[in-house]
């Protein structure tokens, strides 16, 4: 994809004499290609003013790909290099992606992304840990945590890597890595390369106890195991 021109609007702007840069403030809107950034303040710097730094409470990025699927990112601060299309952010980051009727929500604290190289919006999100949630109308919500979430933006696949713990309805799954396919809605996991950590699936099915209903667990009450860190 070739890089089009970018447009920038804001209520006010002033010159930072010291650093000889212009600071745009209040309702700043920056558009570049399929991406729009809304921020409280924004500066342009670097070689032919190609490095955009935006601050906001939070900064909001809105991205729409060819198929009309949207990706919205909130972050307190972002840095965007127009030339390479590279974007990075840190702090409380929230990404919301719509894929058909499903809605994906990702939380993390450190993001690097690129909207130019492929048609979609590829990114790598790290967190302590990152959180991953899917709301699907017909299915119970899927909720997962992992050390890192990745997506190459092209084939709508999100990869969860490192200490992945997933929970859906009354069953859990832990694995070394796991992929969620947005189109087929299929989650697949595998054992770690060393083979040391295998996929562990737990089903909290309630057994018909008949008269000796001793187990405190009832189907409705949600039960999660607090993972003992190996």
């Amino acid at each position: 994809a070739t890089l089009e021109k970018s447009r920038l609007r804001s209520d006010r702007s002033n010159l930072d004499v010291q650093n000889n840069i212009i600071i745009y403030r209040d309702n700043v809107i920056y558009e570049h290609g399929n991406m729009t950034i809304y921020a409280d303040s924004l500066t342009k710097q670097g070689e032919n003013a190609g490095t955009i730094t935006a601050l906001g409470s939070p900064v909001k990025i809105h991205y729409v790909d060819e198929t009309g699927e949207t990706t919205d990112i909130d972050a307190p601060k972002i840095i965007y290099r127009q030339q390479s299309g590279e974007l990075s952010a840190s702090g409380d980051i929230k990404i919301v992606q719509s894929s058909g009727i499903d809605k994906l929500t990702l939380l993390g604290n450190q993001l690097t992304a690129n909207q130019g190289v492929t048609e979609g919006f590829g990114f790598v999100l790290n967190g302590a840990p990152t959180e991953f949630r899917i709301e699907q109308p017909s299915q119970p919500a899927i909720y997962a945590t992992a050390d890192q979430l990745r997506s190459n933006g092209k084939d709508k696949q999100t990869e969860l890597v490192g200490n992945v713990k997933l929970q859906q309805g009354d069953s859990n799954m832990t694995a070394a890595f796991l992929t969620y396919d947005g189109t087929s809605k299929v989650i697949s996991a595998g054992k770690s390369d060393s083979g040391e950590q295998r996929v562990e699936t737990e089903f909290f099915w309630e057994q018909e106890q008949g008269d000796n209903a001793t187990s405190s667990q009832s189907a409705t009450e949600q039960q999660t195991e607090k993972e003992q860190q190996q």
């Binding site: 859906q168 799954m173 694995a175 087929s184 809605k185 299929v186 989650i187 697949s188 996991a189 595998g190 054992k191 083979g195 295998r198 996929v199 562990e200 699936t201 737990e202 089903f203």
Partner: peptide, 9 residues
């Protein structure tokens, strides 16, 4: 359940 691969659909 422990397994080498898992697919959830």
């Amino acid at each position: 359940v422990y397994s080498d691969q898992a697919i959830r659909e």
